[in-house]
């Protein structure tokens, strides 16, 4: 297959621009705005929250001046199970519900409801899974979503999209609103580097080559780790002469096995980089996809099966070696094995 291969073709921001803090964006800001726009255009769109409307920015619907929009917001209080069930009921009656909470509470407190009330009947419930990963920061381990990919992708019918950055969120909302069945959108909490632009392609179910490399190594990644992985790839290219491919697995389920395998065939080894436990996340998904037909030795770069600790988001990325220097170090460690 033909690979969209260059940064130019993908219409990405240069890494220098991406690193510029003035360009950083928080997913929730763009999410709230996109949700409001959608609710304005589509009367069947409704929004629900469980006492976190300001944090998730579903408050944009609640606080809409137009009463025909604000009446489509429901706060169920602090009750995530009821939140998901109510969303499912709204979907049963023909609405397109956007169900919002922190990722750890949606996936962790209401998994049983997501499973039986939403996924089994294959209802078009959309989950705004904010606060993904460890960049949640000072709230600490109880609030980190580092098992969400694992437990959500094991649910039949679930579609799991991972937002690359704040700029991409409106694109995802637009592309998934009419996608069949349940869709979970995993997003980060804080303002983080933006690599995509309005022209960067996004299609549900596709992975994209963000950096074309040589014959040595591919780095599969997703979400906010895409930026740090691209940075790491540059360092590896200049300092180690490795020239890695970087694949943004933008949708984790259904997995774009085609793109993942096509790149795998070009290289000797791969690493998977993600802000998630090394067990069951993107690493597991890629390994499952390749094992049968295109086996590739893989290294897994993520959270090493621990709950981690409180800290500032950037400090935590450094501490758990998920920033560019940390990724470089871990890739080198893997390659030297």
């Amino acid at each position: 297959m033909a690979l969209n291969s260059t940064v130019k073709e993908m219409r990405l921001l240069s890494l220098t621009d991406a690193a510029n803090r003035e360009n950083w964006q928080a997913c929730k800001v763009t999410y709230g705005a996109a949700l409001l726009k959608l609710a304005t255009e589509r009367p069947e769109v409704v929004a629900l929250d469980a006492d976190l409307a300001n944090s998730t920015q579903s408050s944009r619907i609640r606080d809409a001046k137009d009463e025909s929009i604000s009446r489509r917001f429901f706060d169920v209080g602090i009750s995530e199970q009821d939140l998901v069930g109510t969303g499912a009921g709204l979907a049963l009656a023909g609405k397109i519900p956007y169900v919002n909470s922190f990722g750890v509470f949606l996936s962790g407190r209401a998994w049983g409801q997501i499973r039986v009330s939403v996924c089994y009947p294959n209802l078009p419930v959309r989950f705004g899974g904010s606060y993904g990963g460890i960049t949640v920061g000072p709230d600490g381990p109880t609030h980190f979503a580092i098992s969400d990919i694992a437990i959500l992708r094991s649910l039949p019918n679930m579609t799991l999209v991972s937002a690359t950055d704040g700029a991409q969120v409106p694109k995802i909302i637009e592309a998934t609103v009419d996608y069949p069945g349940p869709v979970y959108i995993r997003m980060g909490r804080v303002p983080l580097p933006v690599v995509t632009t309005a022209e960067t392609p996004f299609e549900t179910g596709r992975a994209y080559v963000y950096r074309k490399g040589g014959g040595e190594l591919v780095l599969y990644t997703t979400g906010h780790s895409v930026y740090d992985t691209l940075e790491a790839a540059e360092i590896l290219a200049t300092e180690d002469g490795i020239d890695p491919w970087v694949v943004n697995v933008n949708t984790i389920k259904p997995l774009d096995v085609d793109t993942i395998a096509t790149v795998a065939k070009q290289v000797k080894r791969g690493c998977v980089v993600e802000e998630h436990n090394i067990y069951g996340g993107l690493g597991g998904a890629v390994a499952e996809a390749l094992a049968g037909s295109h086996p590739l030795p893989l290294g897994f770069i993520g959270i090493e099966d621990e709950f981690c600790e409180s800290g500032e988001p950037m400090e935590l990325l450094r501490e758990y070696k998920l920033d560019a220097p940390g990724i470089v170090e871990r890739v080198r460690g893997y390659l030297s094995k």
């Binding site: 000072p138 709230d139 600490g140 381990p141 109880t142 609030h143 600790e309 409180s310 800290g311 500032e312 400090e315 935590l316 501490e319």
Partner: peptide, 14 residues
């Protein structure tokens, strides 16, 4: 050192 990397005291009780 509440809520800081390396500190004892996590953002929520542990």
């Amino acid at each position: 050192h509440l809520r800081r990397v390396g500190g004892l005291l996590q953002g929520h009780p542990s």
